[in-house]
Simulated scan of single mutants.
Amino acid sequence: MDSPHGAAVTAEDFGLKGPRGWVFRGVDIEAGPGSLVAVEGPSGSGRTCLLLALTGRMRPTEGRAEIGGLRLPRQMAAVRRISALGPVPGVNELDPAFTVAEHLRERALLQRRFDGSLRALLRPRAERTAAARGRIDAALDAAGLDLVTLPKAERTSVRDLERLEALRLSVALGLIGRPRLLAVDDTDLKLSDAERAQAWELLRSVTDNGTTVLAACSQAPRDAVIVPTGATTAPAPADAPTDAADTAAGKNTTEEGADDAFAETRRA
């Protein structure tokens, strides 16, 4: 696989407001091409919505951001073309009934249909098949997924994959399109300490090949560009709550706002 040139990610006072309040606000990012950017926060803190906004899949409310020199929200469609989603619950999940091979074939076909040039589409069938196989093999290699090690090789169903294997498959699917930016949600969810270390090593290897990675997580590695979500991303107003009950209420508002904004995006 040719090493794609990663997209620089910058944001200033970036925010998104849902029907019931701010999902995230006051986000600042400065990350060069090929960076590992860790969006750190607990579940419900708006980290998934931030990933979707930075990849052009959710329209921000305030502030500015640029992905590879493309401005958000003005150039959302262009940002979508240079970015890809790894696993994002509710948006880009693996189908547990599909086999690994079925997922790979489907993604390669979609890539060829929607992103291929007219000249590529007119090439002989054997040549197109070989090119698709080459992309799949390169993506699997970049994601560190060896099909031979799976219970039934490429005929293994997704439901039979271990959590880390499923993560590698999702990353491979995203890399088939050779994106400049790859977004991965719930990076460290349900992983042991050893598996978590392997997951971050996987994403570092992707950045070493030139692709910028945005990864949502509950605990970020110290060598990443860390972007906190939740209360820490927004400037505190003068009348900010100080007791535990008010703080909990503010957290619930963030979670509800994220749910509402997320639902609006899925309907769009």
Rank of each mutant, 00 (worst) to 15 (best):
E162D: 13
R163S: 14
L164Y: 01
L164P: 02
L164C: 11
L164M: 13
E165S: 15
E165G: 10
A166Y: 06
L167Y: 08
R168W: 08
R168N: 08
L169N: 14
L169A: 12
S170F: 04
V171C: 06
A172M: 06
A172H: 05
A172T: 08
A172N: 03
A172L: 11
G174H: 11
L175K: 05
G177Q: 12
R178L: 08
R180S: 15
R180P: 06
L182G: 13
L182A: 07
D185A: 10
D185I: 01
D185C: 08
D186E: 15
D186C: 10
D188N: 13
D188H: 08
D188K: 07
L189D: 13
K190E: 14
K190T: 07
L191A: 13
L191E: 12
S192C: 03
D193G: 09
A194W: 05
A197N: 10
A199E: 02
A199D: 03
A199V: 01
E201Q: 11
E201I: 03
E201M: 04
L202I: 03
L202K: 02
L203H: 01
L203T: 02
R204P: 03
R204Q: 12
S205V: 02
V206L: 02
V206C: 04
T207F: 05
T207A: 04
G210A: 09
V213R: 11
L214E: 08
A216K: 14
A216S: 15
A216N: 08
C217Y: 11
S218N: 15
S218L: 12
Q219W: 06
Q219L: 12
Q219S: 13
A220D: 14
P221F: 09
P221K: 11
A224G: 13
V225K: 09
V225I: 12
V225S: 12
I226V: 15
P228N: 05
P228Y: 01
P228Q: 09
T229F: 00
T229D: 01
G230N: 03
A231K: 02
A231N: 08
A231R: 10
T232E: 14
T232F: 13
T233I: 00
A234N: 06
A234D: 09
A234G: 13
A234L: 06
P235G: 06
P237T: 12
A238F: 10
D239Y: 07
D239I: 09
A240E: 04
P241S: 01
T242K: 10
D243G: 10
A245D: 05
A245H: 09
A245Q: 04
D246W: 03
D246P: 06
A248C: 04
A248Q: 07
G250F: 00
G250H: 02
N252T: 09
T253P: 00
E255G: 13
E255L: 13
E256S: 13
G257L: 06
G257V: 09
G257T: 07
A258W: 00
A258F: 00
D259S: 15
D259V: 14
D260E: 12
A261M: 13
A261V: 10
F262V: 03
